[in-house]
Amino acid sequence: MNDRSSDLKGVRLDSQEDAGRHVVRTRGISKAFGAIEALVDLDLDIPKGCVYGIIGPNGSGKTTTIRILNGLLRASSGQAWLLGEAVPVSESIHRIGYMPQEMAIYSDLTAVENLELFAGMYSMRRERFEERADYLLDMIDLKDRGGSLVSELSGGMKHRLSLACALVHDPELVFLDEPTVGVDPELRNGFWEHFSRLKAEGKTIVLTTHYMDEAVRCDMVGMMRLGRMIAEDTPEELMASTGALNLEEAFLQRSRRVEQ
């Protein structure tokens, strides 16, 4: 962890060499909506196999960052790379998954039909899809509800299905925008088990959250405030450097320091 964080602040590797290690890389990306600066000069280097948490209050630029990375928004300036390819990616798009903040699944389709639609978007073969669907439905504990209409599922089940839809093509890099907002603690715990499993498979996860207790479980945390990255390190380092007992306090201290 430590050498990775020193790497962040130290020498910049060129993007060719970098691609293998840093699956997400941005240089000076900014985004303005009219007079509002949603994102200011963001540099990110997220290494492979990392669970990276972007934390910050509402309006701090978390979602804007994710949407620029996955191509839904164009940065006003700066450049980003995913898996070594400049954003918006085309080749690498097959290797990237995205779970939006909204549930973003079709409530008038069944759970399996939702998975099948997204599998279709990635041109997955039938056999491969069936294998994946079995695996994912098992993972999200919806094995016996695969044929149920989404509108008949509980909120938690829908959340789990939404995650499964982001993972159907077995992506190497997954963006999860507030994956656990409005999710009960037990289910959140379950989600983190899935994240650990993905990490163990060598996947990289970039997620946004405003739950500090969740941020602690990330390998690396970027604290955002008013469109700016105000601190970035491991949760342990962030707490240690501010002398705070928890991340929330660390965040508040950093915020105050920026204001001064």
Binding site: N70, L72, I93, M103, A104, F118, Y122, C165
Partner: peptide, 13 residues
């Protein structure tokens, strides 16, 4: 409104 269009647009479609 449900975000499914955005989600589709992040896939190769």
């Amino acid at each position: 409104s449900t975000g499914t269009l955005d989600r589709l647009l992040t896939t190769p479609v």
